[in-house]
Design a protein around this nucleic acid. Structure first.
Lengths: 191, 191
DNA sequence: GTCTATATTCAGATAGAC
DNA sequence: GTCTATCTGAATATAGAC
């Protein structure tokens, strides 16, 4: 990622370190050390450690929601919408793996009232997916599946994708990855 | 869970608290407080906080591996084996949701050398699943899927199940849950 | 098994000089 | 924007008496 300001550099370094060690295990001293300055300087860029977490979590969550909303509001049939949601997730996870890793692994470290706010956003995202599936079941493009369970299964089945892009410059082609995942979600492992 | 000794009670209380607050955020004082005694007494039952994590993680991991090994060693065809692996996972997650939650959420908090040991066990479990899938592709009971991706998708798609049983006495019937998940994994959402 | 007391270490955060 | 110095609180863990 291109870093324009020292604040952006500070935030990127924080994100990387939190990915490596976990939020709680990453100290302000760790971040400062990698920035090659004293701890106290960190507070030139943020007012608390929690700020770092909130900033990335809510920013990336909004990106997911905006995309999901655009897809839901379109006139595509439900199966096409589901493909697009999966595709969009993979693209974000491939482009911003560390941000997505944070969403998957560190949201529990938010403190109130941000914690409840974030949990509500997660829950809302699930509701949007459930709505999409219900739409498809009603219109007959999907089988008569249990929407609650299918929502959990489908969202869970793509949640690992960031991991393929987080550590090394992965050689997994996102287009091929999308093709394979879409194939599994739509038709399963059977012939 | 039936608790026979005070040590078992201590460990169960620890597990519950770690589930509620996360491993790092749970202090020995928190656990002692819920046990209604002073912190120092905790060290009658374990020699360090890490012990608690290691104990549950490796014990539950072994349970998963043993079951997986029995299934792989059987003469069932690959599709039947896959059903049994899914079924077994759901049963463990329904019976011991807090232990499975720990496996999903807290393994990163292990310290070396246990961390590397545990990562190797996870990786081995994935290899066993990949072997099962490769078997099924070769014999023709599965479609010509990308084994690496399918492994990640399938394991991921059942990883959330503990959550349906962790907090409240869930009204989700594990048999019905299994039926729905198997249907999705084998045939997807399409008609 | 329980307590009191304490050693040790380390975390987040702020004040204020340059 | 950088530093030194420091406050404040909290954590894991141990020693030793009852």
């Amino acid at each position: 990622m291109r870093v324009r300001t020292k604040r952006e550099e500070f935030l990127q370094v924080s994100l990387q370190l939190i990915h490596e060690k976990g939020f709680k295990a990453t100290t302000m001293r760790d971040i400062a050390e990698r920035m090659d300055f004293d701890v106290s300087n960190s507070y030139n860029y943020i007012k608390s450690k929690q700020d770092i977490l909130e900033l990335f979590l809510f920013r990336t969550s909004e990106e997911f929601h905006t995309t999901m909303d655009h897809i839901l509001d379109s006139s595509y049939p439900a199966d096409e919408k589901l493909k697009q949601v999966i595709s969009a997730h993979i693209q974000v996870a491939a482009r911003k793996p560390l941000e997505v890793a944070l969403m998957v692994n560190e949201w529990r470290n938010l403190k109130e009232p941000k914690y409840s706010e974030y949990v509500a956003l997660r829950s809302l995202y699930e509701k949007k997916m459930a709505k999409l599936l219900r739409e498809g079941v009603k219109s007959g493009v999907f089988a008569a599946l249990n929407v609650k369970i299918a929502t959990a299964v489908i969202l869970s089945s793509i949640r690992w994708v960031y991991d393929a892009y987080a550590d090394t410059k992965s050689n997994i082609n996102p287009i091929e990855l999308e093709r394979q995942i879409v194939s599994l979600v739509f038709d399963g492992v059977s012939h």
